Structure formats: C-alpha cells, structure tokens
Simulated assay, not measured.
Amino acid sequence: MNYESSKRKRPGKQLIVVFTFIILLLIIVFFLFNFNFFETDKYVEVSKTGTDPLTADYDTYHLDDSRENQQIKYGFELFTNTAEYLGPDNPKLERAFSGNNLSCNNCHLQAGTKAYSGMLIGVINRFPQFRGRENKIGTIKERINGCMERSMNGKPLPPNGKEMKAFVAYLEWLNRYAPQDGKVDGTGYARIKIPNRAVDLEKGERLFLKKCASCHGEDGQGIPLRDYAGYLYPPLWGQDSYNLGAGMARVITAAEFIKTNMPYGASYDKPELTDEQAYDIAGYINQKPRPQKANPELDFPDLKLKPVSTPYPPYADNFPVSQHQLGPFQPIMEFYKKEYGLTKNK
C-alpha cells in the first residue's frame, strides 16, 4: 500500500521540477537579452557609425507623430515649401520672413541631402564656426538667418521662435549619422578649375539658352507652381530671386554649384557641363538685375577676407568691380597671396 502511494506521488514531483527548471530558464533568457549580454559596447558603436550618411534614410514620412518628430517634419516643410509658410504671400503675414518665393530646397537640393549642392548633412557638427562675412564665430541660427536675409532676400527669424526651432530640429535630424567633425564627402560645392580669363557673356548666354532655359525660361524667371506658392524651377534673376549679398551671386560659387548640379539630373559623378561652360553660365546669370541687400558695405569687416568674386565693393585691393564680378580672378588671387599671404580659391 505504501509502495503504491509513493509511486503515485512521484510524477507530481517530477512535474514540479520540470516547471521550476523552465521558469528559471525563462528568467535567465530574459535577463540576458534585456541587459544586452550578447552585445558588446564595441558592436553597438560599429553599428551606429557603420551607416553611410550619404545613403541613410532621410524620408520624414517614416517618422511617427511624436512631439519631437512633428518639429522635424515642420522643419522639413519649411525647408521644402518655404514660400508657402514664410513667403511674402503666405496667409499669416506675421510669418512673412522671406522676401521672395524661393525655397531652401532650390539651392540645397534634395532637401539638403544631395552631395555638392550645399549639402547639410553634418552641418550641425560644424557649428559654431568662424565666418569672414561677419568676422566672428557664429551659431547655426545666425547662419540660417544669413540665408533668410540674402538668398531669401528677407529678414531674420526670431532666434527662439517656432520656425527657427523647427529648422534646427530638421538639421539635427540630418546630422544623426554624421561624424563628430561634421565632415562628410560631398559637403559644400565641388571645386572647379577657374578659367584664367574673364567670363565670356556671349558664350554664357548661348549656353544658358541651350542648357538652362527649358526649366528656368529664356527670361530666367523660372516656372511657378500652379496651386501653391513657390517654384517648380526657380527664377535666377529679377525681384523674386536671391539678392546681391547671397553666396550664389558670386561667379565662382555659382559656377561650382552649376557644374555638379545643372542641368537638372547632373551630379558630381555625371556632370553635363565643363568647368568653363559652368563659369560662363554663372557669369551670365549674375550680370542680370537682382535685389540689392541693405548695407552691403557692412559685410566682411576685415576686407582681406572677402572672396575675390564678391560682386560689390569695398575691397582691400584696387581691382575694378567689373573684374571682381567677371574675372579674370587669378591676378586678384595673386595679389592677396603676395600682399597679405592669403591663399584664396574663390
């Protein structure tokens, strides 16, 4: 009788042992994965830095609607549809900070992610930075407002306003895979070999009509969007374009942009224009009338730091304004090297 009784109890004890073992195993597995025992710090770092900033996903559509992501999305909207939100004809006049109907995206292509088109990936890590135009170390907010006053021919955004915070949030989001120094292949514009001659305006006009007019119009006034403020292809001169104080108003800077981005579809790897062609087109465009920036004489307090192709005086040299606008630029560069020990490339 006792033998049979113990025999019946034994399976129950075995089940208890089995269940206890399973529970302990699950607890061990939980702690191993929850505290990343299978991952080393080195692996996490490699995974983070292994993402190529030039091929990362920068589509804001994939972001959820958290408060932080809503700010990033608003920054993206401001960047790509600037005229709709900040332009002179937007519904809220208190937001009319831009003086034209361009968008940031017209110069910083593909929402600031295209290489050698003023690409903004990593830009946050490059600020604060010294800029000769102001002759001081400036913040990213000051740089944004520089664009608002020059490329957008407008007025500065409030530094702590909703729009400025959204712009900065978007740039910080673009920055997430950039190296610590912010230096990413494709930053800025690609250098060109500057022709050792003045711009040929006749060649520039012929090339413009052949290569550029189909998008920007023979009159350079672009193609406006049908249902929204802004442009499908922006005007390159006239009252709705960038003003004389913008970087794009400098022939060498404009030529660098044109060489690797124009006509539409061109790239650093597959340019459609030669350096000389880009140079002549840039000179032709920038000889056309455009808005004047207020108080341009206050730019570059140290005149020696002024780029040689800045189209407005004063200068720290005696070369005529026409040569600063159209070249040849090599004699000006040689002067600064000899007189001030400064090497200038634009």
Rank of each mutant, 00 (worst) to 15 (best):
173 W>G: 01
146 G>F: 13
177 Y>C: 06
138 G>I: 14
191 R>M: 11
143 R>Y: 14
164 M>Q: 00
159 P>A: 07
154 G>A: 08
168 V>P: 07
140 I>H: 02
125 N>Y: 06
134 E>K: 15
184 V>P: 03
121 I>D: 00
181 D>I: 14
161 G>E: 03
120 L>C: 03
182 G>P: 15
187 T>N: 14
167 F>Y: 12
135 N>E: 09
169 A>F: 09
130 F>W: 11
176 R>C: 01
119 M>R: 13
118 G>M: 05
189 Y>V: 12
186 G>H: 08
164 M>I: 08
149 E>C: 10
159 P>I: 10
169 A>V: 00
151 S>N: 08
183 K>V: 15
180 Q>I: 11
161 G>D: 00
134 E>F: 15
144 I>R: 06
147 C>I: 15
144 I>N: 03
165 K>M: 11
169 A>C: 10
136 K>S: 13
126 R>G: 02
159 P>G: 04
151 S>E: 04
166 A>W: 00
154 G>S: 03
131 R>A: 10
143 R>P: 02
175 N>A: 05
159 P>L: 11
132 G>D: 10
155 K>L: 07
175 N>I: 07
135 N>Q: 13
162 K>R: 14
129 Q>W: 06
177 Y>G: 11
192 I>K: 01
123 V>D: 05
138 G>M: 15
128 P>Y: 08
188 G>N: 06
173 W>K: 02
134 E>V: 13
148 M>D: 03
165 K>I: 09
126 R>E: 13
120 L>H: 06
136 K>F: 05
139 T>K: 12
150 R>A: 13
119 M>Q: 14
120 L>K: 04
148 M>I: 06
148 M>Q: 03
149 E>I: 07
187 T>Q: 15
126 R>T: 10
169 A>H: 09
120 L>V: 07
156 P>A: 00
167 F>I: 10
135 N>P: 00
126 R>W: 05
139 T>W: 10
151 S>I: 08
154 G>F: 08
173 W>T: 05
159 P>W: 12
191 R>G: 06
164 M>Y: 02
139 T>F: 07
153 N>V: 08
151 S>P: 02
121 I>Q: 03
190 A>I: 12
118 G>R: 07
192 I>W: 12
186 G>Y: 05
130 F>T: 09
166 A>R: 00
131 R>P: 02
149 E>W: 03
167 F>S: 04
147 C>T: 14
171 L>I: 04
149 E>K: 12
144 I>K: 09
182 G>V: 08
118 G>E: 07
148 M>Y: 04
166 A>P: 08
173 W>H: 01
149 E>A: 09
